[in-house]
């Protein structure tokens, strides 16, 4: 008796989650794809900012260093939700003002681009600190040897500093990536249809809150698990050439 009820309950959930209408599975997956797109873009944009930020903080002049200090302090001090609201509305407002000044009408800003820009700036502040620490952890002799053999600064950065710092940076960057995937949920507040918003819509239309939020949670968990595997590979690659910390097993 109970067994049939349970089977029936599950059958109902399966129907709600099915990929074809009337199921909402396709909506959820579309939301997930959008979330991943933004997370990926924001993470990449953030690492790029972080690279410039870290080099600026380490080797820049006093003005650059002060500006970067303000950037990383403010971004890391203000709650992300507030930052997202500020950056999103200020950003779209500025772009529209600029467009208006140049004689264009209102511009419809793509949610993905806006999301990448907003989260990227947030991620950049954290990346700056992760990469700055990693660059500082590179033994100075490695860079000195490159200089002694006549490598120009940019080549030293690409061929020596960045590969050598990878092993120090990967754990921190892996964390940032996971934060990026979850921060995409905050974009629901500005009406961007990523996984969380799609889930909420599906849930409120069907009243099956538990089913849909559990499914969304499962999807986020899967992203995290897959990321763990990928970053495991990256870390292994980045640590090539270093004896295993565990000793004997590597």
């Amino acid at each position: 008796m109970e067994l049939t009820l349970e089977t029936l309950g599950l059958a109902e959930s399966a129907q709600l989650l099915s990929l074809s209408a009337p199921g909402w599975g396709a909506n959820l997956l579309r939301g997930l794809a959008n979330s991943l797109k933004i997370a990926f873009g924001a993470f990449g944009f953030g690492v790029l900012i972080g690279l410039f930020g870290a080099y600026g903080k380490l080797y820049g002049g006093p003005v650059i260093r002060d500006l970067l200090a303000i950037y990383t302090t403010v971004i890391r001090a203000v709650p992300e939700l507030v930052l997202i609201l500020i950056l999103y509305y200020v950003g779209t407002d500025l772009i529209n003002k600029a467009a208006g000044a140049m004689g264009y009408g209102r511009i419809e800003i793509s949610g993905v681009v806006a999301g990448i820009w907003v989260l990227g700036i947030v991620q950049g502040a954290y990346s700056t600190e992760v990469l700055r620490g990693a660059i500082k952890a590179v033994p100075p002799g490695q860079i000195e040897a490159a200089r002694a053999f006549g490598m120009p600064p940019i080549m030293i950065m690409w061929r020596v500093t960045i590969p050598a710092m990878m092993s120090f940076a990967t754990p921190g960057l892996a964390n940032l990536w996971l934060i990026a995937t979850k921060d995409t949920a905050l974009l629901a507040i500005v009406g961007f249809s990523e996984l969380t918003l799609e889930t909420r819509q599906a849930a409120s239309s069907t009243r099956a809150y538990f089913t849909f939020f559990l499914a969304a949670g499962g999807l986020y968990l899967m992203v995290t698990l897959c990321s763990g595997v990928v970053f495991g590979w990256i870390e292994k690659w980045a640590r090539r050439g270093q004896p295993s910390l565990r000793g004997g097993r590597g």
């Binding site: 033994p139 002799g141 490695q142 053999f149 006549g150």
Partner: peptide
């Protein structure tokens, strides 16, 4: 900078701590 980089390629330094690139 170009000149000193070019000159450095004609000098080769061997360091006390070897300073080999550990990721290579």
């Amino acid at each position: 900078r170009r000149q000193i980089e070019r000159i450095r390629t004609r000098l080769a330094m061997v360091f006390q701590q070897f300073n080999l690139w550990t990721h290579r």
